[in-house]
Design a protein around this nucleic acid. Structure first.
Lengths: 343, 343
DNA sequence: GGACATTGTCGAACCGGTTCGACATCGCTG
DNA sequence: CAGCGATGTCGAACCGGTTCGACAATGTCC
């Protein structure tokens, strides 16, 4: 049941059916009704491939998905969900592209074979081949995150520098003097992931400003690594009284490590960081954190992308978000010395 | 740069280029090299829409994504990740379709417009319109979960009945006599979600078999609901000493509720259920649970689907998985009376 | 050396839409 | 009533691939 079949049954030409559907030319009310009846009867829907071929638009956006090698975090799930939803609202479908070891294969495929009209990139690095590549091609894309020099590109990002600094100030204000930083895995830091770098930067600078004694750690994206990392922290400096983490997946492990070391949160030890809100609420005590507005970011990214697809010459736009710290229950006054000694 | 351009530059016809690429007819080594050189020079990749139109295959599978209204669980993320990865290994792309309120719109779109060669359905209900619809159409699809009468359909499922029963037996063996069951949200139970129903069934029957006193609850998919649910449980029967949960997203809240009620896990209260392994490990104490092998299930679903797409007449196949309970740290001996009284 | 199979290439048709130019019909105006 | 613009419809070409039948060139056999 293709457009020709509909045309035949309605006694009109194929082009008339097309115009009746698209409205790009006037069609008499009479024939329109005739056509519509046949379409309803047969439940006809135009073939997406044929349509894409004819008008050069697939009505699909690509979402470059982080590789499974890294464990997924809740944040990523929220992104994906909101992107899919926002895209649907704009009548776009979402095609997932795993950006793994063979990132090139899948990535090239999406672009080279023109499967998508635009792309959203996640897990941006400061120096990112993919972003450069797309920019060079002039291919519509929006990054969730920003590169070292984001001028002239389209992106939606979190100000990790400011957020990490805000966490430091929050802890310093509470009187903490020895603070640890738990970053994403070392492999990601070395690869140049922007959140890991800017977060570390913001943490280090703010800590220096406040004269804090700090140590920084990389930590695998899972609970066991978090626990191990915490043991290392207390081993390296037992006087540590607080930590800031960007590592959502390790959070449960960090909490467990603290419990096993006999440090009560928040009485003996404060924990804060940058984590998606609903995940901050699953741990006990609930995490005081800068809530990553993943849902909003996904939506904004789609809106920017759609705008860019529709107007290829529009000037670059971006959104830099700085969500406030949500005070929950995981931070408390720091005494300057570990409370295990002062009790 | 289309196939005609390549043909022109290589001095051959379009069909020859096509045959050189597909290998469906012999092409002399000489011309093949000539063509290949031009292709490499121009970085040519065939247009996916044109190809799909011509041979009636999109090389894309649809993944029907749970609506965002329900909060996403970690399990779902693992599914998606493994499906995308497995699909890539079979040279398929994955198109996401949100199955929300307007499920029909997006769903119909994927199928009716022939955007995909096959579909994987998540969050199956005992009576599922989508499954029936696809079966009636003979459209290749694989369900992750099984309907009330799954005979003749393709699916990958978990034996929730057996898993919930195993949890009950585990608790009963430990001496627990008063056990609560924490299910998915009531709305999902009423909608007929299979995991909620079969899990409840398995729990109820096994509990009857063992002569346990039980209460069953529905609980929202978030931490706050979990906490509230636990308060309700202890309010309804303070003598409860254990619970079984299918609700991954509520787990953190359940733990918090227990902590606030002064029940120590596992000394005073045992918790178990059916949860993806890596999420069972983020809580403290780590959850003794039947680990949902989400990764394996996604992979199996893709393999089944690819098989079905390639051989439309193959007899239905399925996989019913019954993962064992992983003993971790959240269950312990039950005394028959709440330990707060026996201490 | 003619009949015949094999190999390699080509042109044309097709997949299912969209869009452009042409044209018939109609009502309106001068 | 001739001339004109507006309206509605059609046929044909096109998007970029795949595939079928035809056929020329070459090699093989009797």
């Amino acid at each position: 049941m293709n457009i020709g079949e509909i045309a035949r049954r309605a006694g009109v030409s194929r082009s008339t059916v097309s115009y009746a559907l698209s409205g790009k030319r006037a069609v008499s009310e009479d024939t329109r009704r005739k056509i519509q009846r046949v379409i309803d009867e047969l439940g006809y829907q135009p073939n997406a491939s044929a349509r894409a071929l004819a008008n050069g638009r697939t009505n699909t956006i690509g979402l470059v998905f982080p590789p499974a090698g890294n464990h997924y975090t809740g944040m990523q799930l929220d992104f994906i969900g909101s992107v899919v939803e926002a895209a649907a609202a704009h009548d776009y479908d979402v095609l997932l592209s795993p950006s793994g070891v063979d990132s090139d294969r899948s990535f090239q495929r999406m672009l080279g074979e023109r499967r998508v009209d635009g792309a959203i990139l996640m897990e941006i690095r400061l120096e990112d081949d993919r972003v450069d590549h797309l920019a060079a091609l002039g291919f519509p894309s929006v990054a969730i995150g920003r590169t070292a020099r984001p001028e002239g590109t389209w992106w939606v990002g979190l100000d990790h520098t400011a957020l990490a600094a805000a966490c430091v100030h929050h802890l310093a204000d509470l009187g903490h003097r020895r603070v640890a930083f738990v970053n994403r895995p070392e492999q990601l830091l070395r690869a140049g992931y922007e959140s890991a770098h800017r977060g570390l930067d913001g943490f280090t600078k703010a800590a220096a400003e406040r004269g804090l004694t700090v140590r920084t750690y990389c930590c695998g994206d899972d609970a066991a690594s978090g626990q191990a990392c915490l043991e290392q922290i207390l081993h390296d400096d037992p006087a540590t009284t607080a930590l800031v983490t960007l590592n959502e997946a390790a959070l449960g492990g960090l909490y467990r490590g603290l419990a096993q070391a006999g440090r009560h949160v928040p009485r003996d030890f404060s924990v804060t960081g940058v984590v998606a809100g609903r995940w901050a609420e699953t741990v006990t005590p609930q995490l005081t954190a800068a809530d990553v507005p993943a849902e909003q970011m996904g939506r904004l990214a789609v809106e920017l992308l759609v705008e860019r697809i529709d107007q290829p010459d529009a000037p670059p736009r971006h959104h830099l978000l700085v969500p406030p710290i949500s005070l929950r229950a995981s931070t408390g006054p720091g005494t300057g010395t570990p409370s295990t000694e002062t009790r």
